[in-house]
């Protein structure tokens, strides 16, 4: 059964910044970034979630982002941020649940490092029975294929010339029509199921995206009346663009066909 049941799925509401928990519901991190792969002319498909300061730094941007990302690279083997393949997720609902047990994950490494080198050395820091490094035998720890130790958790299939994109690469990029009309920055990505993968199906731009992130745009948040009214107004300032209308995607801008931007209620969803 696929982890992602929403169709369409808006990443800023449903995935980004959501809490990531292990199979027992213990927090292991946050969805700090997303990785996509694009083969040939297909729309990019979601391959994994990224966690940790290195991924977060890219989202934050600016000097601060570089500092945060730098802190993430202090790990001895700087092989990119911890990553979990979408196929290793158990559930994506109000939080993201992994199929694995926290003791079987190779991250967060700083947690283990601090435990072994600092906290564990302070007198009185004896371990409670429930934690620690029990090998994952107890209570049938689920360790699906591909979630093994040693960092191959979603290092991501990077084979075969597929183009790799991060959500942080895309979000914030200015979107313009071919004629030059500016549509604002890219604020959100809409994914749709395509067989057993999820591909980017639409772009959301404009200043009203706060309604999407807070959850008002899709009827999930239903009150209070004042915020509902404000968010309805904000929503009018967002534009939805179908992926098919995309003309060009570069580091600096996203070019779309003239007249591609549809407002909510005009049939773009």
């Amino acid at each position: 059964m696929p982890a992602i049941t929403d169709d369409p799925l808006h990443v800023s509401l449903r995935l980004l910044d959501r809490r990531v928990v292990d199979v027992d519901g213990e927090p292991v991190g946050r969805v700090d970034d997303l990785a996509f792969e694009q083969d040939a002319d297909d729309a990019p498909r979601l391959v994994s979630i990224l966690m940790g300061p290195e991924a977060l730094g890219a989202r934050l941007g600016g000097v601060l982002g570089r500092v945060v990302a730098g802190a993430g690279r202090l790990r001895p083997d700087a092989a990119g941020p911890p990553e979990v393949a979408v196929t290793d997720l158990e559930e994506v609902d109000t939080e993201v649940r992994l199929a694995a047990h926290r003791d079987d994950l190779p991250f967060p490494r700083s947690e283990a490092w601090v435990r072994d080198h600092v906290i564990g050395r302070i007198p009185g820091a004896e371990r409670s029975s429930s934690g620690g490094k029990e090998p994952g035998g107890e209570a049938g720890v689920r360790q699906p294929p591909g979630t093994g130790r040693g960092g191959e958790v979603g290092r991501g299939p990077a084979d075969g010339g597929a183009r790799r994109l991060r959500a942080s690469d895309l979000l914030g990029t200015p979107v313009v029509e071919r004629s030059g009309r500016r549509l604002g920055r890219l604020r959100d990505l809409r994914l749709r199921a395509d067989g057993d993968v999820h591909r980017i199906d639409g772009l959301v731009t404009g200043r009203g995206v706060v309604a999407e992130r807070l959850g008002y745009a899709y009827g999930e948040v239903v009150g209070p009346a004042l915020l509902v009214a404000l968010m309805r107004r904000a929503e009018r300032r967002t534009s939805h663009i179908d992926w098919e209308d995309l003309v060009e995607l570069t580091a600096d801008r996203i070019v779309v066909r003239d007249g591609a931007a549809a407002r909510p209620g005009e049939g773009a969803t």
């Binding site: 941007g61 600016g62 601060l64 690469d169 990029t173 890219l186 570069t250 580091a251």
Partner: peptide
């Protein structure tokens, strides 16, 4: 493709 559209956060 590289990152774009950064803003400095915070006050």
């Amino acid at each position: 493709m590289t990152r774009s559209g950064r803003r400095t956060p915070g006050r």
